[in-house]
């Protein structure tokens, strides 16, 4: 083999790059069954089916934002009943910190909702911070 030290250095660098997930976390990767960790919701039925809600709740919230802000519709009828078009409707059953936030942090999702809106973790709504 020619230029052995350089070649070995190259192979070592290649292996280090492949092991990125381990060294960026200092080997601290925890397997977590997030569905067991989340707080159990209080109600019986969610707005839509549970599977639908798990993947598409943001689509529902996007739709709600538009019908509430642009058309003033405050009631939303689904096969599971009639719901208030508001985030507080979600928190009637779901604990924000133990359910919503926990899963978002697990997934490293940063909802842009709280740039404007109130959430239960805040002392006062964000809008009032701006004033």
């Amino acid at each position: 083999m020619y230029h052995k030290p350089y070649v070995i250095l190259g192979i070592v660098v290649f292996l280090i790059i492949l092991a990125t997930p381990y060294w960026v976390t200092a080997g601290n990767i925890k397997y977590e069954d997030i569905h067991k960790e989340l707080a159990k919701p209080k109600g019986v039925n969610c707005i839509m089916g549970v599977k639908w809600m798990a993947s598409k709740h943001m689509e529902l919230l996007n739709e709600w934002r538009e019908i509430a802000v642009r058309k003033g519709v405050r009631k939303y009828k689904t096969e599971n009943g009639v719901f208030n078009v508001s985030l507080t409707e979600c928190w009637r059953c779901h604990n924000y910190d133990e359910y919503c936030k926990k899963c978002h942090e697990f997934m490293d999702v940063r909802p842009v909702c709280w740039d404007c809106h109130y959430n239960p973790g805040m002392k006062i709504p964000t809008v009032n911070y701006i004033k």
């Binding site: 997930p21 990767i29 069954d33 997030i34 798990a54 993947s55 689509e59």
Partner: peptide, 19 residues
């Protein structure tokens, strides 16, 4: 096509932690 990412992440973690 929205996917339930919680299972995707659990699957990815299971691969990387050999669990």
């Amino acid at each position: 096509v929205k996917v339930d990412l919680s299972y995707v992440k659990m699957f990815a973690l299971s691969i990387i932690t050999v669990h």
